[in-house]
Amino acid sequence: MRSLVNAPKTARQGEIIEIKAMVAHPMETGYRTDAKGAPIPRNIVNRFTCTYDGEEIFSADFFPAISANPFLSFTTVATASGPITFTWTADDGATQTATVEITVT
């Protein structure tokens, strides 16, 4: 998995910032069959978490109805300078982590 995260590098304290996060993943639904008619096993990113300063601020459970390359946009209050960490977990156990540093003034 490869991921792409967009968050402001700097923010004023108390400002509401928007975070966009996307991960490259086919999100195989488990409802499709291959060319020979055999079912393709389900493999989706089923969980996403975002922590800010070590505290979880947002998380999501995904089902097969989420598009391939799952995209999320959400907000958080800029409280303090520090790392914002994103973790995606797939059915097959694969994980992807991304971190951005934010400077809060």
């Binding site: 601020i57 947002f58 999501a60 459970d61 109805a65 989420i66 598009s67 995209f71 907000t75 209050v77």
Partner: peptide, 30 residues
């Protein structure tokens, strides 16, 4: 998020709290 006619009714569940600032989330669905 739920749907009426996909093979599964659930789409996604998002968890948030007061630190979100705004209760708003966007994604892309099938």
């Amino acid at each position: 998020l739920f749907n009426q006619s996909n093979p599964q009714p659930e789409v996604a569940v998002f968890r948030m709290g007061p630190r979100a600032g705004r209760a708003q989330v966007a994604t892309r669905i099938r």
